Computed example of a mutant assay.
Amino acid sequence: MGWNAFGTTDTYIEQSSISPTLNVVSPKWFKLDANQLVISEADARYVEWAHDSGKQVWPLFGNTFDPDVTNAILSDPIKSKKTINRLRDILVQNDIDGINVDFENMDMKNKADYVNFIRLLKAALQPHGMLVSVDVSRENPDPNWSGCFDRRKLGKVADFIIMMGYDEDIGGGGHVGSVAPLPWVEKGIQLLLNDVPARKVMLAIPFYTRDWVTDLNSRKIHRTDLALADVERIITDKGLVKKWDPKTKQNYVEYIEGNEKHQIWVEDENSVKLRLDIINKYKLKGTAAWLIGQDTPEIWQVISSF
């Protein structure tokens, strides 16, 4: 599965045409709203293209990381039912195959509410043959970004649980480093499998990394997200040589420009191959990628041979 976001239907079609291995697309089309309940950007043209290309469509339904709006909907049975019914009607009208629910940064008090919401959503969509997948973070100490998910119960009511195997640095790590060190990802899968059967688990992998920039005078640090294609251009333009980092199981580059030191843990075909090996090792359902369009051709060569 691959997510589409921040583009148009035309760009989504172009990006998602890159590999026949991509058999489920998830355009970022729906978001929770306090007034309208569901704001939709569904486009029947993309659905038609996907079906003609042999791909299923599971649009992303997000909560824009807003805990207050999420609580207002999830804690109110009437609003929850109306939200689910509105979403179902849009999905049916557009001949969509399923939904990918991406509610993040929720209050711990909504933990049970969220499970009930997914249970009711599944009940509403099942008669139409639609699948429900739910995104969860890799377990970490943060209550709103991790503790809000009852992974065991979500795994019972949803068709698939997708572990977002990235953002260790902002998911309880809080340090300069890789977006997704392989040992951290594998441990996360092991923890998730304590709660959810492997046949329901998908591993989401990053098609991005971060440039960590340290001001050598002030020692202040800031970071910038980079698409994988951008990283390869930087490496080529600056004549950098990748070095293998055995701790993260990734390549690594660094360079100094002016008074700034740049550090990049590189996501490339080598690290993606190791992530896919985890899927085979634990017999998971499959993989997902954030974000289609940020990849390189080499990545798809590895995925196609998976």
Rank of each mutant, 00 (worst) to 15 (best):
L37Y: 11
E48M: 09
S146Y: 07
T248L: 01
K187N: 14
D95N: 15
F6C: 01
T70D: 06
D150H: 03
Y252R: 02
R45K: 14
N259V: 13
S75I: 08
W244F: 13
V272L: 10
A204C: 10
D167I: 05
S16M: 14
D225V: 13
I221C: 01
S271G: 01
V231I: 11
F103R: 01
F30R: 02
N105P: 00
S271E: 07
I279Q: 04
I299H: 05
P297L: 03
T9N: 11
G62M: 12
D169A: 11
A123K: 11
L32M: 14
G2E: 14
D68E: 15
D142K: 10
A123S: 10
V157Q: 03
S133N: 11
V47N: 02
K249N: 08
P27E: 06
T64P: 00
V201N: 06
V176L: 07
V134K: 06
E41R: 13
I39T: 12
A50G: 02
T296M: 03
T64A: 11
N116I: 14
G62Y: 15
P20M: 07
F65H: 09
D76C: 08
I78Y: 10
S305H: 14
T64V: 13
A72G: 05
G172T: 12
P181M: 02
N194C: 03
V302Q: 02
Y114T: 02
D43R: 10
W290L: 05
T21F: 11
W3G: 01
V231N: 03
L22F: 07
R219T: 03
K285W: 12
I189A: 08
W49K: 03
H262N: 11
V302M: 04
Y208L: 09
G293V: 06
N71V: 09
D113L: 06
L216N: 14
K281T: 15
I303G: 00
L274H: 06
A198I: 12
N105I: 14
K111W: 01
D10N: 13
N217S: 11
H222K: 10
F149I: 05
W145L: 10
K79H: 07
D89L: 04
A180P: 00
K153G: 00
P127S: 06
V136F: 01
L125E: 11
F306G: 00
V92R: 08
I299M: 09
R119H: 04
I234W: 05
W145I: 09
S75L: 07
V176A: 03
N23S: 12
I161C: 07
D89M: 04
P20N: 13
W212S: 02
I234R: 06
H175E: 14
V185P: 02
P141Y: 06
T64W: 15
T83L: 05
Q126I: 07
R138L: 12
D10G: 01
R210Y: 15
Y12L: 01
D225W: 15
T248W: 07
V132A: 05
E269S: 10
E298V: 09
R275S: 07
K109G: 01
H222G: 00
D167H: 05
V92H: 07
Q36S: 11
K156L: 09
G129P: 06
A124L: 04
K247G: 07
V213E: 07
G147D: 10
P297A: 02
N116Y: 09
A34M: 03
K238D: 10
L121T: 12
G188N: 03
R152M: 13
